[in-house]
Design a protein around this nucleic acid. Structure first.
Lengths: 347, 347
DNA sequence: TTTAGCACTCATCTTTTAAGAGTGCTAACA
DNA sequence: TGTTAGCACTCTTAAAAGATGAGTGCTAAA
């Protein structure tokens, strides 16, 4: 009996899909009559009622209270996403919108990430997250020191992909600015072209011989180390905190406040994205989320790679009632765009 | 008769002040009975009623509908701010909170502005705006070109105050990257120490003689010009979009959406700040705002200067029912802090 | 000039009523 | 045996109807 093998026979799947499609669109609990009217399932409301009762028994649907329509459960969405989801490619207008921007002149690299987040949330009407790549794989180009005052220097790190990080650092006691300048010259000469990662691991030691003064080497090493570290920081770009207000789920100010406060915790959000990193698209639905803040949200993540190396993650975050199909294909599309841009910058 | 001279006799002023104080605190229309109970005005509710009726006649108070308490009008707030406002200095805890941050290590200059915005909104529970200084007065330190691909270069501009701006620019046809590098060398040698403003006006022309090739000079000039222009851009930092939800005025999602969408229009907001620039603290109340989006908001701005030159503006934006006294003294305090930090960076 | 008293107005809260959507169950039907 | 019509019942939501109470404005007395 196929029913036991798959748990859901074909008609139950059709009903489940219809319920979810409907609910995603209307945000209202769906009842048997409306379902029979809209979707042409070929059976009467009574039959649908029976099926829905079964689906509820099996945990795919939920009743809010006796007598109001059904709402999908996390398990229901999961089944839907894994098997029933109708493909919904990015529309041509949306593609045009995206491509137009990606073709326009970019003035700073971080604008790419900012705008990616903005586009995703504009199209999905949900919050978007873009975790910008660590630069461990970027090739070191040069390091510059600029004196700020007697005790502090500005360090500027550039990589070949055009990423620029600057940071104010305190000089160790006794160190002279000129020493750093000399160090920088040595470093720039020796390490250009190495990846930041390899500099950390091997190359820094190699240039040790070049420097005569042992004490200077140690103190300089630490500050250079910190300068290089700044390149390994991941930046998080957030978009669509205004757009999410269009979702009926956030028509309650308390919920909005709660969500915004959670989103403001940058480290938490980064951790969540990092935890969700998968091979391609990864969908985490409602209860599946570990973090209690997101038990009734879904997160779709896509990671982008270059030459097998993980670069970063983009994500859509919204209520479990989300246009999964659309969000998924959009993320895929943006992912390609982003990878291409980054590749282009790497040339 | 002093009544006619000042329009409001002393008791009317006391009543007005009491009404506004009360309303700012409670966000509820205030009635005569409650007023008589809380504030010790020494007269009966009936008298207060008469006074309030007069104040309404004169335009200082408003009736929402017959029979509910009074609410201050823009004119009422204006009188309050200009003369009745009780001084409310920044509390010691707040000062400690602020000073703690300002003393901590800053890693990038823009963090100063970001954090200033964050602190202002955390304390006032309102939206804050920080317009970071143009760098026209900053001294040029150096300009660097980095090749990005065949047609584009990254330009990095640094000033003595540690501001760093980077920008991707397209090279004019026929120009070679090496040319720019040579140009940069000439420029860096000749223009270090000049202000960006003076470079624009005079100095660029002066170095013309140094460059032999006329065609190169022209094309290089344009790109350098654009690089320098990036230093003149004003950046706007926004804070407290989450904090503002604590105000009862924004307990309605539609209003929140509307406000957030307006705030997202960066150029509009910059224009508003620029228009409000005054000598010191400037308060614009409700109807006084030119922009229709802010007819029921108040904006308090403070501008910070250095050596007589305008640097930027910080502002609090909130509903007309706002703790003016607190916001004003806070802005003043932050203004000093910010000026000091910038001065320190200029050293 | 101040105040007490009183009628009147509204917003708001609560209760009531009505309508409607939806369910679950039973019994009939193919 | 699966499907469907019918029907009683539940529960939300919207509208209507009172009830409450804060607040006003006016008048007349102190």
């Amino acid at each position: 009996m196929p029913e036991k093998l798959y748990e859901l026979d074909e008609r139950k799947q059709r009903v489940l899909k219809a319920v979810i499609d409907d609910y995603i669109e209307s945000a209202e609990p769906v009842g048997s009559r409306a379902l029979a009217r809209k979707h042409d399932l070929g059976v009467s409301p009574a039959t649908i009622r029976n099926e829905m009762a079964d689906l509820e028994m099996l945990g795919y649907l939920q009743h809010l209270h006796t007598s109001s329509g059904r709402v999908p459960s996390s398990k229901g969405y999961r089944f839907y996403v894994d098997g029933l989801i109708p493909p919904k490619p990015v529309s041509d207008e949306e593609k045009a919108l995206i491509d137009r921007w990606y073709k326009s002149r970019v003035q700073r690299i971080d604008q790419v990430f900012e705008e990616t987040a903005r586009l995703i949330s504009a199209i999905t009407k949900n919050v978007s997250l873009v975790l910008a790549p660590q630069m461990t794989q970027a090739q070191f180009r040069c390091l510059q020191f600029l004196p700020l005052d007697a005790r502090r220097v500005i360090t500027v790190l550039m990589t070949d992909a055009g990423f620029i990080e600057n940071k104010i650092l305190e000089m160790p006691d006794g160190a002279e600015f000129e020493d750093f300048q000399r160090m920088a010259a040595v470093i720039n000469e020796n390490l250009a072209g190495h990846t930041l990662k390899s500099i950390e691991h091997h190359a820094l030691a190699q240039i040790r011989d070049e420097i005569r003064d042992e004490g200077l080497y140690d103190s300089a090493l630490s500050i250079i180390q910190r300068a290089l570290d700044s390149g390994k920081q991941e930046r998080l770009y957030l978009g669509g905190t205004t757009k999410m207000l269009e979702q009926p789920e956030y028509h309650d100010v308390e919920k909005v406040k709660h969500m915004l406060m959670t989103l403001e915790e940058e480290e938490l959000m980064k951790d969540i994205l990092r935890a969700h990193i998968g091979d391609g698209l990864e969908v985490t639905i409602g209860q599946e989320n570990e973090d209690s803040h997101f038990k009734d949200s879904s997160i779709i993540t896509a990671t982008y790679h270059l030459d097998g190396e993980l670069l970063g993650t983009i994500a859509v975050l919204g209520p479990t009632r989300m246009e999964y199909a659309k969000a998924m294909s959009l993320l895929e599309y943006m992912n390609n765009n982003l990878t291409n841009v980054i590749k282009r910058f790497h040339w």
